[in-house]
Design a protein around this nucleic acid. Structure first.
Lengths: 161, 161
DNA sequence: GTTGAAACTTAGTTTCC
DNA sequence: GGAAACTAAGTTTCAAC
């Protein structure tokens, strides 16, 4: 099977490589060649193309929680949809904020869902005051604090049947 | 400043390295040495120690949404806290599920918060039926579908002031 | 156009100071 | 920790398909 993505053609082998790399980006072409029916040099070529084409958007180190301590919260936000420029300014500030790990537009009662991670409750209050409470575009927001982080994995389910 | 984490001592330089790697895990020791007051060989040593000690829990490739299409949903779950073994079995199944990208215990009305990513609405219904609706431990759940993913970044705010 | 093997280059590791 | 020697991984070339 072949899929055309962003102008490039990807076959099953590309998806198998992507699926392995999204769990361990440091796998070498040799290690991948040991589990895939393709030579290391062909795999290395494909990996470079996948990174250059943007199919691999980034390669990142996931830090242990123990570099913390941290406090995380899920914040659901309801917006006033009036001043478009002000809305976009808020969206940009939230996206750019290093405290925001996850930022989604969602359906339902709330418009936005945020996962915010900060050092402690003081830092959370400072974040909420500065980013949300003081912004007229925010109608209201509700916070659920994270008691435990059981899983945080960016890996997408590629189900390579 | 020094912090003791998991038996190891980390200084400011370690945190500066961690902060750069959590945004780009493919930075070479040479590239890091260009922006940090430390030689490439010392940096390479530190990186290896950070990985071996578990301070860097994993290095992963983040795939572009365009390898999709995908459907994501935030699912909030309220639990019946009676049968402990059954609760733990559910938690294990959810953690192990490749469709679950984020899995949190939260405070408030709901007990669990999930970010679920699947191929399409049929796959979402199959997931919800199999994992949630059919489980007596789940009292109720509410789903918000993701209209847009604005940010999904595992990077922690290390604020190296 | 893609593969696989070999030459080449670059990055990581080890040794020594 | 830093520099140099060494090893390993990625890149390029090229012949073959």
């Amino acid at each position: 099977m072949f899929l055309h993505i962003m102008g490039a053609t990807r076959d099953t082998m590309d998806f198998r490589i992507l699926d392995l790399l999204q769990h361990n980006a440091l796998l070498t072409a040799d290690q991948l060649a040991a589990q895939l029916p393709l030579s290391a040099s062909a795999i290395a070529r494909r990996i470079r193309r996948l990174r250059e084409s943007g199919a691999i958007a980034a390669d990142v180190s996931i830090l242990s929680d123990e570099v913390g301590p941290f406090l995380s919260a899920v914040v659901q936000v309801q917006m006033d949809r009036h001043a478009l420029a002000a809305v976009e300014a808020l969206l940009r500030r939230l996206t750019a904020s290093p405290q925001v790990q996850l930022f989604l537009d969602v359906s339902g009662t709330f418009d936005l869902m945020l996962l915010v991670t900060v050092r402690d409750m003081d830092a959370f209050n400072a974040f909420a005051d500065e980013m949300l409470a003081s912004d007229p575009v925010v109608r209201r927001y509700e916070t659920s604090f994270v008691k435990r982080r059981r899983k945080f994995s960016p890996a997408l389910p590629l189900d390579l049947a």
